[in-house]
Design a protein around this nucleic acid. Structure first.
Lengths: 149, 149
DNA sequence: TATAACATCCGCTAAATTACGCATAGTCTC
DNA sequence: GAGACTATGCGTAATTTAGCGGATGTTATA
């Protein structure tokens, strides 16, 4: 293949299209060593060719167990056009989960909740019971939820 | 799983998501021995990943009978629990609209599409296997879609 | 029963390690 | 020469271990 950047790009795209993967995980140093190039080259290719513009999300983490995750956005049109029936709480919990796993920010979580609110067509119901009070109630009984080791 | 912090986090989150537990009790030394790591590692994970920011309360006690309690706070938003039926294309167009109106960023739009993708995959499933569990399996362990080098 | 001694067990901090981000500058191609 | 490609080096976020100190509970001793 002509140049290194193309090799890297093709590798990632190849992985993404393997069994319609939603995303790929890559370890920068590892891949760099494999392809015999500088680690920063991976960064370069990812940042120039896997942009939101082209329908990609990129997330990464430093330190031990670090990684780069390239997420392929599903094209809006043509896929999955049927009606979508989902338990609202499941949807909310999914958002929660994505948030807890650091996959989305606070703002993004709020936005997705807001999106659900809009779609669900319910008026802004119910003032929130104080979280403090809620948690206070839960603190009362100590030993119930001991984790099984 | 290679990443110790993730192992610990997943263990705790797993416990929290088991039958919707409100909190988990953990004994630091006990869990540390179980997972074959330094006790302080438990502290590290709890302090970095179960912050109030992310909707967690943490309490602990030293000495004999000591413990660490991780409490999952209820999200204030989204209390309606009914099923939600939405035309997928409408949802996508709503996202498009928000994006065109500059109400959300590109990344946010992509994320919301991504969320719909996740939800859409479960449209046909009837049983109670929740989306949370699904996304848990897919997203929690970074190695799932690890590119084979 | 008081209390001293002992055992349990979490909090905190320092230091080392891993691995990605970024700035920079050189090189190649058109 | 411009713009895309490539490598180097440092910065620093994230993780991991080790060790000490202090809080808490239990037991022995008089």
């Amino acid at each position: 293949m002509r140049n290194l950047a193309d090799v890297i790009e093709n590798f990632i795209i190849g992985e993404l299209f393997t069994e319609n993967a939603k995303f790929v995980l890559v370890q920068r140093n590892e891949l760099a060593e494999q392809l015999e190039c500088a680690p920063s080259q991976i960064s370069y290719v990812v940042s120039t060719r896997f942009t939101p513009d082209r329908g990609f999300l990129v997330e990464s983490k430093r330190g031990a167990g670090g990684f780069i995750r390239i997420i392929k956005m599903q094209t809006a049109v043509g896929k999955n056009t049927g009606a979508l029936t989902v338990n609202n709480m499941d949807a909310r919990q999914t958002i929660e989960y994505l948030f807890l796993k650091h996959l989305i920010t606070t703002r993004e979580a709020v936005l997705m909740h807001y999106g659900l609110d809009l779609l669900g067509e319910h008026a802004s119901e119910k003032d929130k019971q104080s979280i403090v009070q809620e948690s206070y109630k839960r603190i009362s009984s100590p030993n119930d939820r001991k984790a099984k080791l």
